[in-house]
């Protein structure tokens, strides 16, 4: 899922061909997520099928260039605007999203804040659940989730601080 949106986000900056996309994706995610070109092309064809991208003209070397459609742009915006919930994501999703946001999105700070608020809400719910539980084991499980969200929040704070410093 996240590769799909990652490529889409990259294309929103301008037409690219497959290899370029792969390079940029890896650069943006810091070589922790190596992509193989096959995955890239499969995802691109799916995106084309969904109408989010279209093929553009070939460049002088004859490689196919893709460009994003209006629908695609809307989708990217929606993706950025939607915080990741703890339920439906591995942690990685958050990392990628944020990396993309920093690399591509002009208002990354807003994204960070939104994510943080959502995390906080989640933590509040977890805390309430913890209060209401009598069983110590259940409490510990909730605690583990709380701690994880806290770590995430800490990292978000750190992103924000670094971003601010770079901007000034």
């Amino acid at each position: 899922m996240s590769i799909r949106y990652g490529l889409l986000a990259l294309l929103s900056r301008g037409p690219r061909h497959g290899y370029q996309l792969r390079q940029e994706f890896e650069a943006s995610t810091g070589a922790t997520w190596p992509l193989n070109i096959g995955q890239v092309y499969t995802t691109l064809s799916r995106l084309e099928r969904d109408g989010l991208i279209r093929q553009g003209e070939a460049d002088e070397q004859g490689r196919v260039v893709y460009e994003i459609t209006e629908a695609g742009r809307a989708e990217v915006e929606r993706w950025f605007g939607t915080p990741v919930t703890p339920a439906d994501r591995p942690r990685d999703e958050l990392v990628i999203k944020l990396a993309m946001a920093v690399a591509t999105c002009p208002d990354a700070l807003k994204v960070i804040q939104a994510q943080r608020t959502a995390s906080m809400r989640a933590m509040q719910e977890l805390t309430r659940a913890k209060r209401d539980t009598a069983s110590p084991a259940q409490r510990l499980v909730l605690d583990s989730m709380i701690f994880q969200v806290e770590a995430e929040q800490r990292w978000l704070d750190h992103c924000e601080a670094v971003l601010r410093e770079e901007q000034s």
Binding site: A114, R116, T117, M120, Q124, T127, R128
Partner: peptide, 26 residues
């Protein structure tokens, strides 16, 4: 400044540079 403790609240307000940036409501 510890989010774990803030999570006990019904509402968490984030302050940035003297202004309220956001608030998380349970």
């Amino acid at each position: 400044h510890e989010s774990r403790y803030a999570a006990w609240a019904d509402r968490v307000v984030f302050l940035r540079d003297g202004e309220i940036a956001d608030s998380a409501l349970l």
